[in-house]
Write a protein that binds this DNA or RNA. Structure first.
Lengths: 73, 73
DNA sequence: TACATACTTATCATATATGATAAGCACTTT
DNA sequence: AAAGTGCTTATCATATATGATAAGTATGTA
């Protein structure tokens, strides 16, 4: 597992943490981002090498900055 | 032009700014990231919807965090 | 003029992120 | 037991990020 892979897992965990903090389901967040629950699950599991465009949608839905999502150290 | 497009342009400008602050060429930075100068140019122009993996390489080469690269507001 | 440096733009192939669907698991509720 | 909720995993098609090459522009300078 590379450092980037670990980073993606951490970002996924950060998204999940922020989502739960807002008391919403993965389905809710996915809907707010206009994608499927299954894809949200993939993202939270760190199984997708996220693009800025995708991060931007998630950040907007969670009302945080992209920097907030990737700030995992 | 969408807000994401504008964001990518801003991130590109941020990368160029940080690179120049270190007094290195786009070629130097590209080499440090293991990609071609032409691709670095594309990135700095905001013409690529960057992935975490690519951002990670650039952040490492510039010795900053990914959050630093995307923190453009 | 000719050459070098720094960068940009265009283009193509290939790898892969995303969109979408279906099926599964664990847990709770009726 | 059966149905519902929340989530995960697998898979496929399609769009696109990246890797790579080639040619162009602008500037300086020998």
């Amino acid at each position: 597992m590379t450092t980037t892979d670990k980073l993606l897992v951490q970002i996924g965990q950060r998204i999940k943490h922020l989502r739960r903090g807002r008391g919403i389901t993965a389905q809710d967040l996915a809907a707010a981002c206009n994608f499927e629950t299954s894809n949200m699950s993939r993202i939270e599991a760190g199984k997708s090498n996220l693009t800025i465009k995708t991060l931007h949608k998630i950040a907007y839905a969670l009302d945080v900055s992209i920097a907030d999502l990737v700030n995992v150290e």
